[in-house]
Design a protein around this nucleic acid. Structure first.
Lengths: 242, 242
DNA sequence: CCGTGTGAAATCCTTCACAGCA
DNA sequence: TGCTGTGAAGGATTTCACACGG
């Protein structure tokens, strides 16, 4: 196996890291549709960014492209896959098996790939013992006894009130990464990484802009994609590409 | 009513906008716990950012603080609330009433506040007609006839395959903001704002970092909060504050 | 004296533009 | 010729540090 760690030892900019999964998705789609190579321009369109950014991002991983041709989709996908931690089969523990938690467990595409659910935790006595997707819902202390290895990632889908406690329990279990769906800022040790998925915040950001979108507002680039005036599906774009 | 639009006409930086809902949440909590004022430092801790950023952000909205004292929590909350579109009661249409969609509809904190569900759309004939939260699931064309006003925000919780079509239908209904949970980049007109909540991408970002967290890594500030080595709940922090 | 508000500096990210290679 | 890889320029955001007002 090759090394795809960019030429230098410098860590990738975080915005770049956040775009790599998009590039991976597009590269896989390109392969699936039988397009062996893909240019930065097409890749950019399908990922909702611009071509310069794609080239800069990918150049940070090394020289993955071929001048005059583009990127080999399969090779690019392999490189991104490895970089993003494929082959590790990350153990995931989910805390808070309410509606949202159950939706995530069953959502295809969420825990697929290199992630494996290894534990379900809830404090509610009425759901304890329930079997979901082959996993029994238990209390934290029970899971701690049963688990052989530390979970790499903890997912918190509890109410806000319970989230901080859940985070501390997850950290105690050895989790170094947390994906938090509860509307609270977590206080964790500095070596624990937290990402927030805060639905009410997303709505508030949208309504902030909606409240001041006097006609042709300047569409800022953040999380906004103003590609083509609707119409073609991404797949169509790929097929139109040479 | 007062105007809280910063002194100038310059739009707020997007990262600032994304933090305002956090400040609002903290300000409300401060009021709830009986702390009439809050300093940028405490606010920063509870929002998981640093104090300089808080002051810079809030100064962009005008002079909301009092030197030597801090910010009046209630007044700050009102200012942020108004800025973020409170009092508008934004109509929301949700497309894709599967597990995730249902979880969101029922999730407290998601559609609370100024957001009102006005329609549920799904293509699956087996769920059509079903009543959820007082709303009947229908096809897009049915909803179009029934709706008097355009939805401000569309939420997409369909499978990836159906998301682009859902976006186009939402835009046709008049939605100018879309919150997309499907793992696809949407192509929409430039004046439509899209925010992406992509769960598999979140996991991949976390595992990217997990794969290279050789012991004491440098914790980057992005979406990461390295406040206190666990322990106190935010509420405790507020109570400890003078 | 304390904590906000804010220019200025520093840092980070994006975009440009083109040299260079297939 | 076509498209990548990349230094350099340009913008945007964060951080600093301190003057100012309560």
């Amino acid at each position: 196996m090759e090394r795809f760690e960019g030429a230098d030892r410098r860590p990738l900019p975080e915005p770049t890291v956040a775009r790599l999964p998009l590039y991976l998705r597009v590269a896989l789609e390109s392969v699936r549709l039988g397009h062996p190579t893909i240019s930065s321009e097409v890749l950019a369109r399908l990922a909702g960014v611009n071509a310069a950014k794609v080239r800069k991002d990918l150049s940070l991983l090394g020289s993955l492209g071929t001048r005059g041709t583009g990127y080999d989709a399969a090779q690019l996908a392999r490189a991104l896959d490895e970089l993003l931690g494929a082959g590790h089969d990350w153990p995931v523990v989910l805390v808070g098996v309410g509606r949202l938690g159950r939706a995530l467990i069953n959502a295809q595409g969420f825990l697929t790939g290199g992630y494996r659910l290894v534990g379900l935790v809830d404090a509610d006595p009425t759901v304890l013992g329930e079997l979901i997707d082959g996993h029994r819902i238990m209390r934290f202390d029970e899971l701690a006894l049963e688990l052989e290895i530390a979970p790499a990632i903890g997912v918190i889908t509890t109410p806000a009130m319970a989230a901080q406690r859940a985070a501390e329990d997850l950290v105690a279990l050895g989790a170094r990464s947390i994906l938090n769906f509860a509307p609270t800022v977590l206080e964790v040790p500095a070596d624990v990484r937290v990402r927030y998925v805060d639905l009410s915040i997303e709505l508030q950001i949208l309504s902030y802009h909606a409240a001041r979108s006097h006609d042709a507002d300047d569409a800022s680039p953040y999380s906004t994609v103003g590609i083509e005036p609707a119409g073609a599906q991404p797949a169509a774009w790929l097929d139109r590409a040479p």
